[in-house]
Design a protein around this nucleic acid. Structure first.
Length: 625
RNA sequence: GCCGACGUAGCUCAGUUGGCAGAGCAGCUGUUUCGUAAACAGCAGGUCCGGGGUUCGAAUCCCCGCGUCGGCUCCA
């Protein structure tokens, strides 16, 4: 965490990438693990049960088989590490040339050969000296051996011609490796350090049966079909533009409608829950970020300053300094607290070009930001109230979620007393809300502990959700106080929190969660009226007028297409309702209601349809009837 | 930022050895007036990502830049 304010929550979107990110994070945070290099060459996943352990063992063995195949093709290959990961494995190689997709096919073909031969995995324990001698031509292995703890047993595994430094375990022989498919080649820094050599990493997936492999590949296909970048274009929600610039989102009318509906909902909800709305500028003077500490520790994420009559000003990367200024604009009494400032605050952060990703990782975005200023004794209730809000939003959007409490990192500021109290308070808040949580040991910001809530979407993928962070830093830096009952000045407690994160990221995630089929209350177009022939257009228009009066977002498809094609078109746009209007309907003041689920509800009086839809909208139902 | 791949019509893509810029869908126009996922015909649509170079000639080869994608790093 950086100093200053709450996180933007910009994690990779797919499970593999997220998994790896998490893995690397854990390495950094756990020096004992990080020292245990041998483990790097084995199984990175934390198996929950025996079956998962067996699967991970098989996948790790698959990595060895892949290395064997690569050795066939490149006798001088240098080998780095090849662990099992979620759904599969990878191995990093240093090769004389870049791998092509054709190479990948060849590696896979050779792997199948080795698997067919049932080569036995043979374990050998060797001394450090023997190991160094054996791997003297393998600089990465040598580095690993040298860093193994003194008392570590060093073992090697061999199958066929391939010998690797490895602690195991492995399957008995290569025939036990299941259905394998190589997925991609990518660059990866040796030991994740951008100052060290770039290796070539081959990712593969491996399953016990062909059937499971096929199912996994189908899940990948499904994720691809739901990709918000693809749906964003197909449903005309947003775009980016090379001229405008990378990482800057253009919200088209339909995407803007979805966003606006969410913003209205969330703003109303905040007002109901005692937040005050504020607006703050997009730029602020250098002084601001000197005092907040951003220029000390967050400068690399900030854009170069612009000159205003000789003074440098910065595009804001966070909203908190401005909010704290509003707090400090007058003397506060303990009676005024808590004060909750909410703002859909648009911030700009420099992200390196290679990290940009659709709407999920961008350079300009709008946070549903809020800062709560309270007394220490109010922290518990405030934290609980935020959790309650998060729980409500999760329910409305149909996410399950998991909570993590991130505790004090080694490098941190603030008194022990403050930390102990804040951590205890956050734990108590989560417990009292009846929510299970995991501890992210040492994962807190240096300026305070936090609660992270991860949303789990319809495909079981994790998304950064609400965060609640206690901040001991900014109130100090900006001398933010209140007058207590004792007439003395006291340091105010500041809590940063977002519930949705950023609108870009949240809507992007929501598109994938729903697969583009928004619930009725969020659908940019809720219904399309489909006149069967030209003579029905007038009636269709009159239906549309009545629906619009009732607040329903409706289009009339009065083109010359046949009804079938109009239905197809509305269906592909994932419009919830297709209202067919022909002679029979015009006669009966009705519409024939077809759902995007292909269900046909038959003819309904227009008034009945309006009632049904407004009911579903008011309740924010995810059902269509 | 780094490694690799890619960039041709709104979208998906083809384009041979360097020799006239192509298809399907979408769009527009006309015909058709149809009962639950694609009527028929015609027309129009191009800075072949941008800039520079090689060449008689560049979408094609070379260099630089921009963007996108898969990862790494970063972010959390």
């Amino acid at each position: 965490m950086r100093p200053g304010c709450h996180p933007n929550g910009q994690e990779g979107r797919n499970s593999l990438r997220r998994y790896l990110t998490t893995f690397i994070m854990n390495r950094k945070e756990n020096p004992i693990m990080a020292e245990n290099i041998a483990e790097l060459n084995e199984i990175e996943v934390q198996p929950a049960n025996d079956a998962e352990l067996e699967l991970a063992k098989m996948r790790h063995s698959a990595a060895h088989v892949m290395a064997e195949a690569v050795l066939d093709m490149f006798p001088n290959a240098k080998f780095a590490i090849g662990p099992a990961i979620e759904d599969g494995f990878y191995y990093d190689f240093d090769l004389p040339r870049s791998l092509t997709p054709e190479d990948l096919e060849q590696v896979e073909a050779r792997m199948r050969n080795h698997i067919k031969k049932a080569e036995v995995f043979t374990r050998n324990e060797v001394s450090r000296e023997e190991a160094l001698e054996t791997f003297k031509d393998q600089p990465y292995k040598v580095e690993l051996i040298k860093e193994l703890p003194e008392d570590e047993t060093i073992s090697t595994y061999q199958q066929g011609e391939f010998l690797d430094l490895c602690r195991g375990p492995h399957v008995d022989d290569t025939s036990k490796v299941g259905a394998v498919k190589l997925l991609s080649v990518a660059g990866a820094y040796w030991r994740g350090d951008e100052h060290r050599p770039m290796l070539q990493r081959i990712y593969g997936t491996a399953w016990n049966t062909k059937q499971e492999l096929a199912e996994h590949l189908e899940r990948r296909e499904e994720a691809l079909r739901r990709d918000h970048r693809r749906l964003g274009r197909e449903l005309d929600l947003f775009s980016t533009n090379e001229m405008i610039g990378a990482g800057l989102i253009l919200w088209h009318p339909k995407g803007a409608m979805v966003r606006n509906l969410i913003e209205r909902f969330e703003t109303d909800e905040h007002l109901k829950r005692g937040y005050d709305l504020v607006y703050t500028p997009h730029i602020a003077s250098e002084e601001t970020y000197k005092q907040s500490g951003h220029l000390e520790t967050y400068a690399e994420n900030m854009y170069s300053p612009m000159d205003i009559e000789g003074s440098p000003y910065y595009l804001k990367p966070m909203n908190c300094p401005a909010h704290i200024m509003i707090y400090n604009s007058t003397i506060r009494s303990y009676r005024d607290l808590p004060i909750r400032y909410a703002e859909l605050g648009t911030v700009y952060r420099y992200e390196r070009s290679g990290t940009l990703h659709g709407m999920l990782r961008v350079r300009g975005f709008t946070q549903d930001d809020a800062h709560i200023f309270c007394r220490p004794d109010q922290m518990l209730d405030e934290a609980k109230a935020v959790i309650d809000l998060a729980d409500y939003f999760a329910e409305v959007f149909g996410y399950r979620y998991e909570a993590y409490i991130a505790t004090r990192p080694e490098k941190s500021i603030g008194s022990d007393e403050n930390w102990v109290r804040a951590e205890a308070t956050l734990k108590q808040a989560v417990s009292e809300m009846g929510i299970g949580f995991k501890i992210d040991e040492g994962g807190g910001a240096f300026y305070g502990p936090k609660i992270d809530i991860k949303f789990l979407d319809s495909l079981g993928r994790e998304w950064t959700g609400p965060t609640i962070q206690v901040d001991f830093n900014l109130p100090e830096r900006f001398d933010a106080n209140y007058i207590g009952e004792d007439g003395q000045q006291h340091r105010v407690v500041m809590v940063h929190r977002t519930v949705l994160g950023s609108m870009e990221r949240f809507v992007g995630g929501l598109v994938e969660h729903y697969g583009g089929a928004f619930p009725v209350w969020l659908a940019p177009v809720q219904a399309v009226v489909i006149p069967i022939a030209d003579r029905h257009v007038e009636y269709a228009d009159s239906v549309a007028r009545r629906l619009k009066e009732a607040g329903i977002r409706v289009d009339v498809d009065s083109g010359s297409d046949r009804m079938q094609n109009k239905i197809r078109h509305a269906q592909l746009q994932k419009v919830p309702y297709m209202l067919v209007a022909g002679d029979r309907e015009a006669e009966a003041d009705a519409v024939a209601v077809r759902l995007r689920t292909n269900e046909n509800l038959g003819a309904q009086p227009v008034s009945e349809f309006v009632e049904m839809v407004t009911g579903l909208v008011d309740s924010k139902s995810r059902e269509l009837q």
